[in-house]
Amino acid sequence: MPSTPDRPTRVRLDRDGGPVLMDGPVEVVTEDGATHLSHRPTVALCTCRRSARYPWCDTSHRARAPRKGGAPDAPEEESR
């Protein structure tokens, strides 16, 4: 459903460096001219360019993004 004056497209921005969340469906045209279409009700667009599914977010940003406390994500140690 395209946006209309009565129902504009909603975009959600987050400060954590994660994806841009948009109300779908959405059509994305990337810089190489390729068109990508999603009919999902909410779409996560990659902003870090680490996604193997670019332009869609696959949460690759989580592996390198600093946590809110400032420390980078590290694998949890196994309990013994």
Score class of each variant (00 low, 15 high):
residue 1 M to Q: 12
residue 2 P to W: 01
residue 2 P to S: 11
residue 2 P to T: 11
residue 2 P to N: 08
residue 3 S to Q: 12
residue 5 P to E: 08
residue 5 P to V: 14
residue 5 P to S: 09
residue 6 D to E: 12
residue 6 D to I: 10
residue 6 D to L: 11
residue 6 D to N: 08
residue 7 R to G: 03
residue 8 P to K: 13
residue 9 T to K: 11
residue 9 T to P: 04
residue 9 T to Y: 03
residue 9 T to H: 04
residue 10 R to N: 04
residue 10 R to Y: 01
residue 11 V to D: 01
residue 11 V to H: 04
residue 12 R to K: 09
residue 13 L to C: 09
residue 13 L to G: 09
residue 14 D to F: 12
residue 15 R to D: 11
residue 16 D to I: 12
residue 19 P to E: 05
residue 19 P to G: 05
residue 19 P to Q: 08
residue 20 V to A: 05
residue 20 V to N: 01
residue 20 V to Q: 03
residue 21 L to T: 14
residue 22 M to G: 04
residue 22 M to L: 14
residue 22 M to V: 14
residue 23 D to M: 07
residue 24 G to C: 10
residue 24 G to Q: 12
residue 24 G to I: 14
residue 25 P to L: 10
residue 26 V to S: 07
residue 27 E to R: 12
residue 28 V to T: 09
residue 28 V to N: 04
residue 29 V to L: 01
residue 29 V to P: 00
residue 30 T to D: 00
residue 31 E to Q: 04
residue 32 D to V: 03
residue 32 D to H: 02
residue 34 A to F: 03
residue 34 A to H: 07
residue 34 A to S: 11
residue 35 T to Q: 02
residue 35 T to H: 02
residue 35 T to E: 03
residue 35 T to L: 08
residue 36 H to Y: 02
residue 37 L to E: 04
residue 37 L to A: 06
residue 37 L to M: 03
residue 37 L to Y: 06
residue 38 S to N: 05
residue 38 S to Y: 06
residue 38 S to D: 07
residue 39 H to G: 11
residue 39 H to I: 06
residue 39 H to L: 06
residue 40 R to N: 05
residue 42 T to E: 05
residue 42 T to Y: 02
residue 43 V to M: 02
residue 44 A to G: 08
residue 45 L to R: 09
residue 45 L to G: 03
residue 47 T to H: 00
residue 47 T to K: 01
residue 49 R to F: 00
residue 49 R to G: 00
residue 49 R to H: 03
residue 49 R to T: 10
residue 50 R to D: 00
residue 51 S to E: 03
residue 52 A to F: 01
residue 53 R to P: 02
residue 53 R to G: 02
residue 53 R to E: 07
residue 53 R to M: 04
residue 54 Y to P: 02
residue 54 Y to K: 06
residue 54 Y to V: 01
residue 54 Y to M: 02
residue 54 Y to I: 03
residue 55 P to K: 05
residue 55 P to S: 07
residue 56 W to G: 00
residue 58 D to P: 07
residue 59 T to S: 08
residue 59 T to F: 03
residue 59 T to G: 01
residue 60 S to H: 13
residue 60 S to F: 09
residue 61 H to D: 04
residue 61 H to C: 10
residue 61 H to A: 08
residue 62 R to Q: 12
residue 62 R to G: 01
residue 63 A to Q: 15
residue 65 A to C: 14
residue 65 A to E: 15
residue 66 P to T: 14
residue 68 K to P: 13
residue 68 K to V: 14
residue 69 G to K: 12
residue 70 G to C: 14
residue 72 P to N: 11
residue 72 P to G: 11
residue 73 D to F: 15
residue 73 D to W: 15
residue 74 A to V: 15
residue 74 A to S: 13
residue 74 A to C: 13
residue 76 E to Q: 13
residue 77 E to C: 10
residue 79 S to A: 11
residue 79 S to G: 05
residue 80 R to A: 10
